[in-house]
């Protein structure tokens, strides 16, 4: 049985570059405001466990999200709220997962950024960095066996993940199989607190691509227009059959690793350098300069986003928490092979 994916995706329907930029910007805006709400809820003690923000990485994240079709595969990392929304995640799913709602996609069994719907090609990360890449490979590999064409799979990581064995094994595997994988590395200068000079010794992470026999793309990760262009090109190259694409985006995380972390290890000089410029601000400047939109419209979007987020949080706060007595406490799909059930 051979299938060809012909379904057009959001950006295809929108048509022009300015519309695609506007769509991406709106996802960035929604993501920034959603993250801020999570930070507020965290400080108010309303969220169990950690909160991880994408502040400063929204342009890169939205760029990958808007260039994927609904029939593509996406394995986001912790700072990809924008990309998740662009890939089609409803705000309510993010809120439910952070707040542990029984009605969320993870049903309170997993939380915060560990969310997804594998059946929709949206893969929920495990915490082990680099481990999602080969899973994306597997989905792409299986679809190729089924004769499905024209799809890509994106996996997002930070520069720290490039030091793992899983990264090496999976990128090499994708290259050997010539899979349509787009590997997006957000080089945000610190893996938790570890600076790049303690993480890797190559001059540029993009150089790694040569060793794997894959194509590389470098971009200033806080430059919205550049991210849209470069990520768009990488996705198009993968979709056209040119094999895995490595995108390395240099940027700075404008927050701690999580909300528990004050990021005191980031030197002020770096924050004040071009690397430290906020991608939201740059994106807004770009859209206004190009006259793609105006400040009044952005203000309307902002208030729409705030209302949607507040509504979602209010709804989830009324929803039931998971009930331990209603759990079946089995980790197997084959229930009769489960041990220890009462």
């Amino acid at each position: 049985m051979s299938q060809t994916v012909t379904e057009s995706h959001t950006d295809g329907q929108i048509g022009s570059a300015s519309d695609l930029h506007l769509a991406a910007f709106r996802f960035m805006l929604w993501a920034r405001l959603l993250d801020e709400k999570f930070a507020t809820l965290y400080r108010a003690g309303k969220i169990h466990g950690g909160v991880f923000l994408g502040r400063g990485q929204e342009a890169l994240s939205a760029a990958i999200g808007v260039h994927l079709n609904k029939t593509d595969v996406f394995a986001p990392l912790i700072r990809d709220a924008a990309g998740r929304l662009a890939f089609g995640e409803p705000i309510i799913d993010a809120v439910r997962t952070y707040m542990g709602s029984a009605l969320g996609p993870m049903r309170g069994r997993d939380g915060n950024v560990h969310r997804g719907k594998p059946q929709d090609g949206y893969l929920p990360m495990i915490s082990h960095l680099g481990a999602m890449i080969s899973v994306v490979n597997g989905v792409l590999f299986a679809r190729r066996m089924k004769g499905i064409k024209g799809i890509v799979g994106a996996a997002c990581l930070g520069e720290g993940a490039t030091s793992t064995g899983a990264f090496h094994e999976a990128l090499n595997q994708a290259a050997v199989e010539k899979l349509p994988l787009v590997l997006v590395v957000a080089n945000n200068q610190f893996s938790y607190s570890t600076p790049n000079d303690r993480q890797f010794a190559c001059a540029d992470l993009a150089h790694k691509a040569v060793g794997y026999g894959v194509e590389a793309h470098s971009v200033a990760g806080n430059d919205f227009a550049a991210c849209m262009e470069v990520v768009g090109r990488a996705v198009a190259r993968a979709r056209a059959g040119h094999g895995p694409q490595l995108v390395v985006a240099d940027l700075l995380r404008l927050c701690g690793h999580g909300e528990h972390d004050d990021a005191g290890y980031i030197p002020p000089d770096m924050k004040n350098s071009p690397l430290g410029r906020d991608c939201m601000k740059l994106a807004e400047e770009f859209l206004l300069k190009k006259k793609f939109t105006d400040a009044a419209q952005i203000a309307v979007w902002r208030s729409e986003a705030v209302r949607e987020i507040e509504d979602a949080v209010a709804q989830v706060q009324r929803e039931p928490a998971p009930d331990p007595f209603a759990e079946n406490w089995t980790a197997l799909a084959t229930e009769n092979l489960s041990e220890g059930r009462e």
């Binding site: 594998p118 059946q119 893969l123 481990a131 999602m132 890449i133 080969s134 899973v135 994306v136 490979n137 597997g138 989905v139 792409l140 590999f141 299986a142 679809r143 066996m145 089924k146 064995g165 899983a166 094994e169 999976a170 090499n172 595997q173 050997v176």
Partner: peptide
């Protein structure tokens, strides 16, 4: 390839599919 981690990861992705 000699990549046990990626072998199993690929299998999980294929199983999802």
């Amino acid at each position: 390839p000699i990549s046990e981690d990626a072998m199993v990861g690929l299998a999980v992705g294929a199983a999802i599919e």
